[in-house]
Design a protein around this nucleic acid. Structure first.
Lengths: 115, 115
DNA sequence: ATAATATATGTAGATAATCTATTTATATTT
DNA sequence: AAATATAAATAGATTATCTACATATATTAT
């Protein structure tokens, strides 16, 4: 990551699921999209992404299928399942709670906007 | 943590430094304050806090001194140093960048409020 | 044509943050 | 007197991400 690893930890799966909510994608494309859409902030490594994708597939959160691009390159596309959509909702809600709690702490305990 | 560990990872040090910016505190107090001010969301464990405090002290981010409370209990208070204040600023700025990047991704890439 | 780079998927082992579980000790409550 | 709360601390486990490597094909530069 462009970031200290520790700042980032834990939300990568949520970001991946969110992208797949929009459309099916292959691994390299997910890395590119996350880099672009985050304003060059999240530079996910293949050593991080592929194991996550394999885990998501094993757990039934995504399914995969192979396709050959016009370029001739073989690509493995991932599609979000209903189970994966449910996990995304859960992770979104956890993320919101977490951000709110941090913001409360960072603004001295009152409810107000930090950032 | 009340949270999945992974959602939380990495920002505990920032929260601790932020509390110490307000006043000197001892370990157990930090855990209590973080729990309260986060709305019972961050239930930091002693096995997490004390090693972090020792690391911060070793790195010159905090200094410590012993005091005995009216209750008779021995407490080890921590005080934020200038170096620690600088680290807090850095971590705050990283946190804001991180949240902005996640929000951008979670709202489909446009700049707009998520949560 | 050949070399270098970009695309694409994958694995093994290292690093680091937090957790669980335990230890020690004193104060308070039952 | 026993149980619980406060207070500090450490050892070892778990887990997310990273670095580094491996393999293969397509594109670009020399």
């Amino acid at each position: 990551m462009t970031y200290e690893k520790n700042v980032v930890s834990g939300n990568t799966t949520m970001l991946i699921l969110k992208l797949l909510e929009g459309q099916d994608m292959y691994g390299y494309q997910i890395i590119d999209e996350i880099l672009k859409k985050s304003g060059n902030t999240f530079n996910l490594k293949t050593g991080t992404l592929y194991p996550i994708m394999h885990g998501l597939e094993k757990d039934g959160m995504v399914t995969s299928y192979d396709e050959t691009a016009e370029s001739g390159r073989a690509r493995k596309y991932y599609r979000l399942t209903n189970k994966g959509k449910a996990l995304l909702l859960k992770k979104e809600s956890e993320w919101k709670l977490y951000v709110n709690a941090v913001n409360r702490l960072m603004s001295g305990g009152e409810v107000n906007a930090f950032g």
